[in-house]
């Protein structure tokens, strides 16, 4: 564990708490892509099933339990509790276009052709693109509530912080995880546009609005 990874994980944790806070206080899931949230549940379940048979640490175990349970809870909030506030007509990205290729990629690129390893690769690939329905929705509506942009910023920061973590691990432990690194770089790159608007507008106190 190094500080980059720790702050990355904390940022990930914070993003979920911000999202929960947004839904609970506004009593609405407006502006949140259900598809992205459903993809995250898929990602967490596929990757963290190892918590039943592979012990890493108490930290690792608790985070996995938190990520799986909170992501399922968010789906419940969106589909049941605050269902009327979710508008599927603007959440139109075809998620199956993401899941299909990720299954294929996982079958080709994995560290071992076993069920848990292919599942792990699948979750890594899927996580790298899971934010696309959300970013697509943002692009489509052209604006976002400030709290939603803080959620995305925390999520993007988590990905960005994993990059110096890998560089650090390369020099301190001599390990490289090519699948995680390549997928992680792609994932972080997807946030570049968002971060540009976030830094130049939201952090200057303006509303998040995309140029028409």
């Amino acid at each position: 564990m190094n500080l980059f990874r720790l702050f990355g994980d904390l940022s990930h944790l914070a993003s979920i708490l911000i999202l929960l806070h947004k839904i609970q206080t506004t009593r609405s899931c407006r502006g949140i892509s259900f598809k992205t949230q459903a993809l995250y549940v898929t990602v967490f379940v596929a990757r963290y099933l190892d918590l039943f048979y592979d012990w890493v640490s108490l930290y690792n175990f608790s985070m996995k339990v938190f990520f799986i349970s909170s992501s399922i809870y968010i789906l419940y909030l969106m589909k049941v509790r605050f269902r009327p506030t979710h508008d599927p007509s603007i959440d139109t990205f075809r998620a199956e276009y993401l899941v299909g290729p990720c299954v294929v990629l996982a079958l080709i690129f994995n560290y071992k052709f076993t069920f848990p390893e292919v599942l792990w690769s699948f979750s890594i690939f899927l996580e790298s693109v899971a934010i696309l329905p959300q970013l697509f929705m943002l692009q489509r509506t052209g604006e976002a509530e400030t709290i939603t942009t803080h959620y995305l910023a925390a999520l993007g920061a988590y990905r960005a912080l994993y990059i110096p973590n890998w560089i650090y691990r390369y020099f301190s432990e001599g390990v490289v995880d090519p699948i995680a690194v390549i997928a992680g770089l792609v994932q972080t790159a997807l946030y570049v546009d968002f971060f540009y608007v976030y830094f130049t507008k939201v952090l200057q106190g303006q509303k998040f609005e995309l140029p028409a």
């Binding site: 890493v56 990520f67 995680a180």
Partner: peptide, 10 residues
Amino acid sequence: AVKPVSHDEL
């Protein structure tokens, strides 16, 4: 140096 990975990251 690519070593076998233990998947210890989240």
